[in-house]
Amino acid sequence: MCGGLLPVINDCPGVAIYADPMIEKVFSNLMDNTLRHAGKATQVRISCNETEDGLVILYEDDGYGISDDDKELIFKPGIGQNTGFGLFLAREILAITGIAIREIGVYSEGAKFEILVPKGFFKAGEDA
């Protein structure tokens, strides 16, 4: 276990996402999973990149990562070592507003969750 506190580097200043208010629970669940399962993690980084299709948000830790066999399995209900519903519910919450999430990290280099926000569902810049 990584302990109770990790520094979070936020590289997404000035971004507003138009989503269900439960989106806070998504990021809370990702952090909880890092604290419970990432073991050697020393930090979390959240970064954003605007593309032609929308906004890509990356949530990354530098812990153990997720094996290729488990990348899709972790989003199924009842899977996991705690309640087994955290990432399943996270995906469902995001899907309400057309936002997708998947795990794209390299096992042993950390978990990396890619959140895809479609055009029209976010605002970036000083007036966000």
Rank of each mutant, 00 (worst) to 15 (best):
N33W: 04
V56F: 11
P13I: 15
G65I: 03
H37P: 02
E50R: 13
N10Y: 15
Y18D: 01
I17F: 13
E24F: 14
T34S: 12
S28F: 15
T51S: 08
V8W: 05
K40R: 07
L30W: 02
G4V: 07
L35R: 03
G39V: 01
R36S: 07
I17L: 14
V15Y: 15
C12S: 15
M22K: 15
G54Q: 07
E60W: 03
L5V: 09
L5I: 08
F27N: 00
T51N: 05
M22L: 15
C2H: 03
Y18N: 04
L35V: 03
A38D: 02
I17Y: 12
M31I: 14
I23D: 01
C2W: 02
T51E: 04
L5K: 11
C48K: 10
D53W: 09
G3M: 10
N10W: 15
G39R: 08
D61S: 14
G39T: 02
G39P: 01
D32Q: 05
D61I: 09
G39C: 08
E24K: 15
E60V: 10
R45Q: 07
N29I: 03
E50Q: 13
N10D: 12
M31N: 12
G65F: 09
C2R: 06
K40L: 03
E52K: 11
I23W: 02
T34K: 13
V8D: 01
F27C: 03
N29P: 01
L55T: 03
Q43F: 12
L55K: 07
C2D: 00
N49W: 04
G3Q: 09
Y64E: 04
L58H: 13
G4N: 09
I57C: 06
G3A: 11
V26W: 00
T51M: 08
K25H: 08
I23C: 04
V15L: 15
G3I: 06
K25F: 04
T51R: 12
E52D: 05
E52Q: 06
N49P: 02
V26S: 02
D62G: 11
I23H: 05
M31E: 10
G3D: 04
M22D: 10
V15E: 08
C48A: 09
A16N: 11
E60R: 15
L55I: 06
H37A: 02
G54H: 11
M22V: 08
L58D: 08
G65R: 10
C2P: 12
R45M: 07
K40W: 01
V26H: 01
A38P: 05
L30C: 08
C12N: 09
N33S: 09
I57W: 02
T51K: 11
T42F: 10
V15K: 14
G54I: 09
G3K: 12
G4K: 13
A19S: 04
V56W: 06
N49I: 06
V56M: 12
D62V: 05
